[in-house]
Amino acid sequence: MIKRITLSVIFIFFFFIIQLTIFPLFISSYLRPDFIMIIAVYFAIRNNKFFLNGFNCFSLGLVQDFFSSFPLGFFALSKFIIFLIARSIKSRFLFSPLILGTTLVIIATLVEGGISLALFSLKNKTDGLIFFLEKAFIYQPLINGSIAFLFFFSIHYLNLVKPLKGFSYH
């Protein structure tokens, strides 16, 4: 258990460093992949442990809140909602981890865009809406989807995502 938690922490830490420090060194653009999102989806579907995975996604969002300009609690909420959606989709459709992971990352990006749009609307901050819609609902899902495909493609062959009980891909 301790080994698993330590590995999870190292894993999360590694991807946070990639997202916060390494990406900006190489990608000097307002569009960049959201690795935290991919990891949240990975946590949601990697095995059938509901509580552990749910807590992991929530914690991941909470940590992300401290490194973002969004209000505290926003990413904790959005990552937990994404976890619930991912679990629900995983239990209903029998996709391979590669297709499931990529599709879920695209859906999760759209969901997070939707939640942030709802937050802005609540606070009457909707200037620049068109550009935001383009970024959050077109470009970002495509970028995240492409990177998620590579990510799940690599872990698919390492067999790091377990199927639901009683289901076989072959």
């Binding site: 935290i36 969004f70 970024k135 959050a136 970002q140």
Partner: peptide
Amino acid sequence: VIGMDSSPLGNSIF
């Protein structure tokens, strides 16, 4: 500058 916002939708640096 040592890092950027954790989310592509955010606008901050460290």
